[in-house]
Design a protein around this nucleic acid. Structure first.
Length: 568
DNA sequence: CGTGACTGCCC
DNA sequence: ATTCTGC
DNA sequence: GCAGAATGGGCAGTCACG
């Protein structure tokens, strides 16, 4: 009897301390094979369950304290966190910012830490509770309180490893190579609803709880370097079979999942946050529409767009009308997951299409509360191509092509998006230190464009580099004497960590031009700065001079073009 | 009470 | 959002 | 092909500060 108690006590301390948790994470992080990562996590989950900290352990893994309340602010603003670290370990703030705000290898940190080490590790459940208290703070003066509490937490750590994962949690980047998708697979549906806030759609569907949306993949992503042709799309995506697939315009708005059940409307965003209150007026209009039209219970997949005087406004306009004046908001439905007591996930798209077309009216130039998208079938590449080109002429983002398959939550396999991408030559002005796996490199760069004899910032860029390229670029620019901020950019709000003394030309791919409150690049026709949406690195252009960047005139014209499109 | 910095969520 | 990476 | 982890512009909301 006594022995048993001793054993239990021993195991309890082994398994439910924060040290146990950080050791599990360390193991998972070091393991590169995903299957093994998952099984390590699964084992840990069993132990966590045994000691009644399963929920906390999962939330810690996913850096999610409590998804119940949307109003919770950032747990710990970066500067508060850094300041707490700096004070706890007697470090310069700037050193924390550069180095210890993101602990990767233990080499540097262990010495610093050892002087402040606690000999016993805190119980995991009590650590989690303390973290929760931090999250619950809000209002004036809360940052100061948070700082105090974070200092407490840091001082409770018994190993440098614990500090590492605590910091990562507070920064909301656990980066152990295992995240929501893998965790989700290990949960049953009720745990999934409770802990992740969504349902997978396998088995029963519960209305009023969001379902992971199905997603699309991009055609150009799999076909870099090459021109988009409908012939290639037909061959690669459709297996030369045009028969079963549908073509639709891709509206540039905001994805919303609509649940209407028992006379109640609920809206959910793409990341499954509830948006009912954020779009209250739209929600009420929808309820009115559904009530009046004798609607059955439904779950609809829609794009929210914004109308003004018979025109659909571009994305940027929608964003800032959204909260001010929701009378313009409108939904375009493009799929249906549930209708009249029937789960439709395992119906083909043809069948679902027929249902949503039968209960909604097609989209028109005049705003309706809710309408449906128009689907087309095409017999050959010419028709496909004409449709795509017409979409671009009409000012849309591009088109979607959908296979005639079941609705698969989370999958990107059956929907293809085709967007027009453009290239432009820009000048690299400086660099910003990277985070996480890019900590020892520059992680992004400031780009400029030549106008009126000077270079003007127009965007940052941080994707499109292979690891090797990024390392090479970092070495190249960091080994040169660094430049300084040009006098005309002293007021620029997002100063690079390193200004480059040599300004090279890079070819950059982007999607659209946007009005910018941050970037000063403009010309005399504009009363605002401009920038580009979705910038990505394509290649270096050593053959070009900075004067050959742009020209900005092209971007300005593109910007004006988007402003006055009709979108239908 | 207004402004600027920061964060979370859209894309 | 886009992109790259290891499995 | 999947999942994860880097990174982008820009808006609304929150909080610190003057």
């Amino acid at each position: 009897m006594f022995c048993c108690k001793q054993l239990r006590l021993y195991r309890f301390q082994q398994f439910s301390t924060f040290r146990w948790c950080s050791q599990v994470f360390d193991q998972i992080e070091k393991e590169s094979r995903r299957k093994i990562k998952i099984s390590l996590f699964q084992d840990a989950l069993k132990q966590a369950q045994e000691f009644k900290v399963k929920e906390e352990f999962i939330r810690f893994t996913l850096c999610d304290v409590n998804s119940q309340s949307q109003l919770i602010e950032a747990a710990v603003p970066a500067n508060v966190l850094y300041s707490a670290i700096a004070q706890t370990y007697n470090l310069e703030f700037s050193l924390v910012e550069r180095l210890y705000g993101e602990i990767n290898s233990m080499n540097n940190f262990e010495d610093v830490f050892n002087a402040h080490k606690k000999s016993t590790s805190i119980q995991f459940s009590s650590l989690f509770q303390k973290i929760q208290e931090i999250f619950e703070l809000s209002g004036g003066g809360c940052e100061e309180q948070k700082e105090v509490l974070v200092k407490d937490l840091l001082s409770l750590c018994s190993s440098a490893q614990e500090v590492k994962y605590l910091i990562r949690f507070l920064k909301k980047r656990m980066r152990i190579g295992l995240s929501t998708q893998s965790v989700s697979q290990l949960l049953d549906e009720s745990e999934r609803k409770r802990l992740l806030g969504y349902q997978s759609g396998s088995g029963d569907l519960q209305k009023g709880i969001p379902i992971q949306p199905q997603l699309a993949k991009s055609f150009q992503k799999e076909n870099k370097e090459e021109e988009i042709t409908m012939e290639k799309i037909k061959k690669k995506f459709l297996n030369d079979d045009l028969g079963g697939c549908y073509f639709e315009y891709k509206y540039d708005g905001e994805r919303l999942q609509v649940h209407y059940t028992n006379g109640e409307v609920k809206l959910f965003g793409r990341s499954l946050e509830e948006k009912t209150n954020q779009f209250k007026e739209l929600s009420n209009q929808l309820k009115g529409h559904f009530d009046n039209n004798k609607f059955d219970d439904v779950i609809l997949d829609c794009e929210m767009i914004c109308y003004h005087n018979g025109e659909i406004l571009p994305f940027q306009e929608m964003q800032n009308k959204t909260y001010e004046n929701s009378v313009y908001l409108s939904l375009v439905c493009f799929d249906i997951l549930y209708h009249n007591k029937q789960i439709l996930l395992n119906k083909t798209y043809s069948q679902r299409l027929q249902i949503y077309n039968s209960i909604l009216k097609p989209i028109t130039k005049q705003r309706q509360v809710i309408s449906h998208i128009i689907s087309h079938k095409f017999a050959n590449e010419n028709e496909m191509d004409r449709f795509y080109k017409q979409a671009l002429l009409d000012g849309l983002e591009g088109i979607m092509i959908k296979r005639d398959t079941f609705y698969t939550p989370g999958s990107r396999n059956d929907w293809l998006k085709i967007k027009k991408e453009k290239d432009i030559d820009l000048v690299v002005l400086g660099g910003y230190y990277g985070q996480g796996k890019r900590q020892q490199w520059l992680g992004s760069f400031l780009l400029g464009i030549y106008e009126n004899g000077r270079l003007h910032p127009i965007a940052k860029i941080g994707t499109g580099f292979s690891d090797q390229k990024l390392e090479e670029l970092t070495k190249r620019y960091m080994s040169k004497p660094s430049g300084s901020c040009p006098s005309h950019l002293i007021g620029f709000k997002d100063q690079p960590h390193v200004w480059f003394s040599q300004n090279d030309v890079w070819e950059v791919t982007y999607d659209t031009v946007s009005a910018s409150p941050l970037y000063p690049a403009q010309n005399s026709q504009l009363n605002t700065g401009i920038s580009v949406r979705f910038p990505r690195f394509k290649r270096e252009r050593p053959d070009k001079t900075i004067e050959q960047s742009g020209p900005i005139q092209d971007l300005v014209e593109e910007y004006f073009k988007v402003q006055k499109k009709e979108f239908l």
